[in-house]
Amino acid sequence: MTASPDSDNTLIQAAGCVLWRRSPVDGELEICLVHRPKYDDWSHPKGKLKRGEDPLTGALREVEEETGYTADPGVELPSIRYMANGRPKQVRYWAAEATEGRFVPNDEVDRILWLSPAAARSRLTQYRDRTLIDELLPL
């Protein structure tokens, strides 16, 4: 019996960043969240890795694709594992400082917000993503 694609238990590998900057107004820490209209959710920028792609390279590529910003990576944060469409998914994250860029809405991400850590924590759709902000704050 041949397994259908839906029953594939292969681990989905993804990567992303908790993207941060210092506010141009008051110098306080701000965290970037992206809004994905397909899911109507707020999350950290992330995405699936391309075949053979280094996870950090993929994380920085996803940040630039979704936010328009280049980033300077810092420490690796804890990975998050969950089920996505019946398949296990692992997302590796890094803390990353936004260096330069400008957001342009696209099909995947229609809005971004730069928020204080407390506001970002509250805005995140998935509870599991909130722990990443807690991990970032001592840095």
Rank of each mutant, 00 (worst) to 15 (best):
D40K: 15
K50R: 13
L60R: 12
K38M: 01
D54S: 15
P45L: 03
E64I: 03
E66F: 08
A59W: 01
T70R: 01
L60G: 01
D41V: 11
E53W: 04
S43I: 06
A59C: 08
D41W: 06
E65T: 04
L49N: 04
K38S: 00
H44P: 10
P45M: 03
L56M: 14
D41H: 07
T57S: 11
G47N: 07
Y69Q: 09
H44L: 14
T67S: 12
T67M: 12
E64W: 14
G68H: 01
G47P: 06
P55E: 06
T57M: 02
Y39Q: 07
H44W: 15
P73M: 14
E64C: 10
G47V: 03
D41F: 01
V63R: 07
S43F: 09
T57A: 10
K48C: 11
D40I: 09
G47R: 01
K48N: 15
G68Y: 04
D54H: 08
H44C: 09
K38Y: 00
S43T: 09
K48M: 12
T67N: 14
H44G: 10
S43Q: 11
Y39N: 10
R51M: 08
E66C: 13
D54E: 13
D40Y: 09
K46G: 07
A71C: 10
R61N: 05
Y69V: 08
K46L: 14
E66K: 15
D40N: 12
P55I: 09
K50A: 10
R51W: 10
G68R: 00
G68P: 04
E66Y: 11
V63C: 05
R51D: 11
D41Y: 11
T57V: 05
D72W: 00
G58T: 05
D41I: 03
T67A: 09
D54T: 15
R51H: 14
E65Q: 04
E62T: 07
G68M: 04
D72C: 00
L60H: 08
E64M: 14
Y69F: 15
D40T: 12
L56I: 12
G68A: 09
W42I: 13
A71M: 13
W42P: 02
G58N: 05
D72V: 01
G47F: 03
E64N: 15
L56G: 07
R61C: 06
Y69A: 08
G68I: 03
D54K: 13
D40S: 15
P45G: 06
W42R: 14
W42Y: 14
P73T: 06
R61Q: 04
D54M: 12
E62I: 02
G52E: 05
A59E: 00
P73S: 10
E66A: 14
G47T: 03
T70S: 05
H44V: 10
K46D: 06
Y39D: 04
T70E: 03
L56V: 05
E64A: 11
L60W: 04
E65W: 02
W42C: 06
R51E: 13
T67Y: 13
K50W: 05
G58Q: 02
P55A: 12
L60T: 04
Y39K: 08
G58D: 00
Y69C: 11
L49D: 05
E62K: 06
P45Y: 03
P55C: 03
D54G: 11
W42V: 10
T70F: 01
